[in-house]
Design a protein around this nucleic acid. Sequence first.
DNA 1: CACATTATTCAAAGCGCTTTGGTAATTTGG
DNA 2: CCAAATTACCAAAGCGCTTTGAATAATGTG
Lengths: 343, 343
Amino acid sequence: MNLKELSANLGLSQTTVSRALNGFPEVSEATRDKVLAAAAKHNYSPNIRAKSLATGRANAIGHVIPTDDRHEMVNPIFGDFIAGAGEVYAANNYEMVLSIIKDADEEQVYRNFKTRGTVDGVILHAPKMNDHRIALLQEIGLPFVVHGRASGIEQNYSWVDVNNISAFRRATDFLVDLGHRRIALINGLETMDFAHRRRRGYEEGLTARDIPVDPALMRGDSDMTESYGHSAAHEMLGQPNPPTAFVVSSIISALGVRRAFEDRGLQMGRDVSIVTHDDGLSYLANDGEVPVFTATRSSVREAGRMLSRMLIEKINGETSNHNHHLLEAELTLGRSTGPAPHN
Amino acid sequence: MNLKELSANLGLSQTTVSRALNGFPEVSEATRDKVLAAAAKHNYSPNIRAKSLATGRANAIGHVIPTDDRHEMVNPIFGDFIAGAGEVYAANNYEMVLSIIKDADEEQVYRNFKTRGTVDGVILHAPKMNDHRIALLQEIGLPFVVHGRASGIEQNYSWVDVNNISAFRRATDFLVDLGHRRIALINGLETMDFAHRRRRGYEEGLTARDIPVDPALMRGDSDMTESYGHSAAHEMLGQPNPPTAFVVSSIISALGVRRAFEDRGLQMGRDVSIVTHDDGLSYLANDGEVPVFTATRSSVREAGRMLSRMLIEKINGETSNHNHHLLEAELTLGRSTGPAPHN
DNA sequence: CACATTATTCAAAGCGCTTTGGTAATTTGG
DNA sequence: CCAAATTACCAAAGCGCTTTGAATAATGTG
């Protein structure tokens, strides 16, 4: 059933039927009701490609997930992010289109999005320091919002980000307050902007208390997998002057860190402490009566909701200026931290 | 730059330019070269909506992720699945469109996919027992392939599935061979087809060795989160006659089971054993020199590749009959299993 | 009651592409 | 050398919708 058939059926013009369906005022209530009833009866739903072609709007939003050869994994937080965004898309009749592509092709994908009209805008994920994609998208003229920020970029753009500096500053402060002096950082890839900021927060925390920043206690050269957390922690704990506490960038890596403790017969929260960042992943909930991990928590799902709303507003032209939302992570106390052991 | 402009530019008709671009034979090599050069120079890329409208093909494949109120999480294996599928889509110029929607709306989404022409086909995820969606998709006439199978469905359809019965049968056999008699099952939601099969494999393994199937040792009423693994295992270990081994349906839940061991001061692989299913998640790799977990392993990423290829073939009409691929999981030995403790 | 408004409805053009059904130019075959 | 076949190209229709510009019907005004 298409518009033509439906209107023929009703003895009305396509114009009128289209307007009735789309809620235009210049159609009488009587006919509108008739049209709506007929549409429902025949299960009519407009062909979206034709509609797109006519309106110039795709009613779709793109997510580009670049994967280079070394890191060909989909970020585990992505599932929760799109769960949040998906709610908003469904409510606003947008489709979500995903491109999982090689790093090198990313620019072409954005350009194609624009010229082919596949999507009306994109959400930019995992910005790096000085991320060139921001300038690229502005040049192309494709509406976008960023999950995170990119240091070193002078352009203005809309973003939602966690206050990574303050989160990791607080995590570090907290451990220092507990008496820890040898505090390790297990970070994400430090080409990533978020990782860079977290490191800054960590270093600021140490420096403020006159604790030297020791490169031997810092790692940030890998995706945040479980095994990365394990090997990094295992190695550091084998050093002559091992850390008594860890600040970790991901709850997944934190699981690996905890495993390293077990290997060495250390008890978490007594012999060694962990504060981890927690994105609120649904399958790794850290929210029992007393959570396992002391964590800086910020919901990535909520970020997905916020960003998709912002982008839709931008696409609809409801706002022309740029929006910035800095989310403060909450520091939730769990069982993974305790006073520094003295000896 | 659109077709009209490009052809005007070249002094050719749209017909010729279109044919040159799409590799039709009835255009001379000389002009084809000219066209290709001009297209490259102007960065021309056809508007996909117009193309879709004209051809009736969307060049897109849909993935519907239903979430009901209780389980509003995106399955953690999904990220790896789409990473696999995404490779294939990129290579074949397909888009991936994702719908994250409420359970109740799923039927409408499929119908809309068809009538609105948003996608050319869908990949069906997480089939339940007697899954009505298979009949629905056949009725609608939307091409589809299934990740998994649905018991109790008489229709024929294409699928890729892990041999869950044999995988869990082998896991159970293995534990029995090690002397275990009290073997628990921590399963996924048993309305899911895969969970049902896994349970069957587990029960067959026990029965074959004359070990009674004890309902007190079986759980299968939740998504496979870490905390579910933890609470289920914690609880069972507190029973009068606790299990000495666990068969677990997900590596994420297995992490929770391991945590329950720690809580109780039990050493994994000595006091208590685990065999878990391992989908090969990239951020939870279980493949060191000696993996942490003894596991039945099958790559969900590879399943994503296979299914997307199958669906594209189906859409292209390259094959009309149904394809079935039963993947055998490999049983990999890790550090989580050992002989049953005697006492 | 004649004229100006306002409320409804419609025919047709247009979105950017593919494809059908030609035509004109060139080759081939007898 | 001419008819037949082949090659290379094109004009125009069509995909299913929205939207412009008009037409018609209904209502109000002085």
